[in-house]
């Protein structure tokens, strides 16, 4: 009886830990998507591609230099550059036409897919973090993989930096103003075009960062782009579009729902994830914490 109870507690603790760490990863992907939507009203369907490409670039860096630590900034920055160019040369000229911009991002997602296939082949790869991070720590008889703790720490750090930039700097204030009312922001002299470029690059940076970090336990393979994309959307929708705090809560909820759904009722696990998302949208189109 006592044993059963112990196993039970262990199950809940481990699943919660896994859910939270998965949520940490989803925060990296979702926060960028949310900011892009908030500032530009664009549903970026190439966001999953940034995640996947980030992982691939990191692999190349690791293969050539052997340094995992170097792979993180290189991958994230190069994908940020891709995002920046895409925004400047393709999305910007369309002006304010969300549907065409959305369709354009899909066109790019297909192009990225093919490029990834050509450069990195169709094989499954794993990004191996340094040995120091692959150990486990034992707390109360339960093994916690150190890498998942690292993911949580990374997301917390990034979240904190983002929050500080958004709340405490002039740039952050301009971004928030653009999210609330782009026209008004332009009227008072905010350069929304530059803000858009900056946010798009930042979103790509965060997604690619997620790809490098998530590649260690999700793997890197063709098709991952469109698997991670709907999850990122779930984060954004639950959290509210354009809201950083919302994205954090959304990521946590989606991470936990995904983990417990798969563990408790595997046959309908995705349904239990997306049905609440649809319901939330139906009741409050701007998401739980989004501003009207």
């Amino acid at each position: 009886m006592r044993d059963e109870e112990a196993v039970n507690t262990q199950f809940w603790v481990i699943q919660t830990f896994n859910g939270v760490s998965y949520g940490a990863l989803l925060f990296l992907v979702g926060s960028g998507l949310s900011l892009i939507f908030g500032v530009m009203r664009i549903v970026n369907l190439a966001h999953g591609s940034y995640f996947l490409l980030g992982g691939y670039v990191a692999l190349s860096v690791i293969w050539t230099t052997g340094s995992w630590l170097l792979a993180i900034p290189v991958a994230a920055s190069s994908i940020a550059l891709v995002g920046l160019l895409m925004e400047r040369f393709f999305l910007r000229p369309l002006g304010f036409d969300p549907l065409r911009q959305v369709l354009l991002t899909v066109g790019f997602a297909f192009l990225f897919q093919q490029a990834a296939l050509d450069i990195w082949t169709g094989n499954n790869f794993n990004i191996n973090p340094p040995d120091a991070l692959t150990k486990s720590i034992v707390v109360g008889g339960i093994y916690f993989p150190l890498y998942r703790a690292f993911m949580i720490a990374t997301a917390l750090t990034i979240g904190l930096i983002l929050w500080l930039v958004m709340e405490k700097t002039r740039m952050g204030a301009a971004v928030r103003a653009t999210v609330d009312d782009a026209q008004m922001a332009r009227g008072v002299g905010v350069d929304t075009s530059r803000i858009s470029m900056f946010i798009f690059a930042l979103g790509a940076f965060l997604a690619a960062l997620g790809g490098v970090i998530g590649g260690a336990f999700l793997g890197i393979y063709p098709g991952l782009d469109f698997e991670i994309l709907p999850l990122a959307f779930a984060v954004v929708i639950i959290g509210g579009m354009g809201s950083l705090g919302g994205a954090a809560i959304g990521a946590l909820l989606v991470g936990l729902a995904d983990n417990f759904g798969k563990a408790l009722f595997p046959e309908i696990s995705y349904f239990t994830l997306y049905a609440p998302m649809a319901l939330i949208l139906a009741v409050k189109p701007t998401g739980l914490f989004g501003r009207e």
Binding site: F37, R41, V43, P98, L99, V102, P230, F233, A234, I237, P266, E267, I268, S269, Y270, F271, L273, Y274, A275, M277, A278, L281, A282, P285, T286
Partner: peptide, 25 residues
């Protein structure tokens, strides 16, 4: 009830519900 990009998002979510059932059930 939704329109524009919000309609796009909600139909995406609903479509994913059906996909989730097809994939997992």
């Amino acid at each position: 009830r939704a329109s524009g990009v919000y309609f796009l998002m909600i139909t995406l979510a609903l479509g994913q519900c059906v996909w989730g059932l097809a994939y997992r059930w």
